[in-house]
Amino acid sequence: MTAATPLPVPADPASEAPVTRAEKRKKRSSANRAATSLSSRTGSLVAIIMAVLWTTPTFGLLVTSFRTQADIQDTGWWNAFGQLDRWTLSNYDMAFNGGGDNATPMGDFFINSIVIAVPAVFLPLLLASLAAYAFAWIKFPGRDWLFVAVFALQIVPLQIALLPLATWFTRVGIGGTFWALWLSHTAFALPLAVYLLHNFMKEIPPSLLEAARVDGASHMRIFLQVLLPLITPALASFGIFQFLWVWNDLLVALTMLGGSPENAPITMELNQISGTLGNRWYLLSAAAFISISVPVVVFVFMQRYFVRGLLAGGTKG
């Protein structure tokens, strides 16, 4: 965080505490023994094992996506390396063509997914940052209880929340439109967004804000001029998570877009690619990698924000 901020940040008194404790501990141990470094060879080995464990299942699916149905059923995916001549792009071909010869090209669904995702990331970020600011830095009665209620409501399953929203949207005439999707995604994202951003905001040294308050700055000015630059990385990071969820969402789209298949996102296409009775399940392997491509590009592209981003102010002891 210190490195990320363009403003001079006064030393956080709280952050000294751990060192003090560590010093005490050191004195007690009274030995200057050779430190066992976590980044030692053992550490690297553990990291590599973890990476292999985490990646192998996905890698198996990647290999599977280049095999025919019969091969997939007959032998394990690792056998594919002994049969390089049998690799095929037919699953990708089918998936790109929507699994049928007259199906809508995947391009349509990509456009829809983008049109859905961008505002569905933008709006919750705006509203959550405002609310998180209020919960962290404006004193008002019942603040803490409201905050607890907000994050506790994360537990409400989307499935029960969808029907009332869909009913209202139909009544006001935006059922089946992108607006219905944007507003629902916003409502469902807010508890977690507020919770995460609040955690970040309250870590910002109070002295920064108090100085601005003394100068007579309004909350609007503090928010825009002091807070926003500081939390830009956090906003970007949460934005990526939200993008991921919206991009992979099927449920909200299914409910809100009922009757408007022309607005369907890519997940709806991928969901039915396996056929009415799931007999073409093997196409799901290719479909999964087509749909994952965009989030992974976004993730890699935004790495710098992840590094310095989410909760980057977590320095309290």
């Binding site: 509203l127 405002l130 209020a134 409201l146 907000v150 029960i160 409502a187 807010l190 508890p191 507020v194």
Partner: peptide, 16 residues
Amino acid sequence: FAGPAILFIALGLLYP
């Protein structure tokens, strides 16, 4: 600041 978010959450999650 907090009103719009709370309104969304109240209608979208608390009411259901």
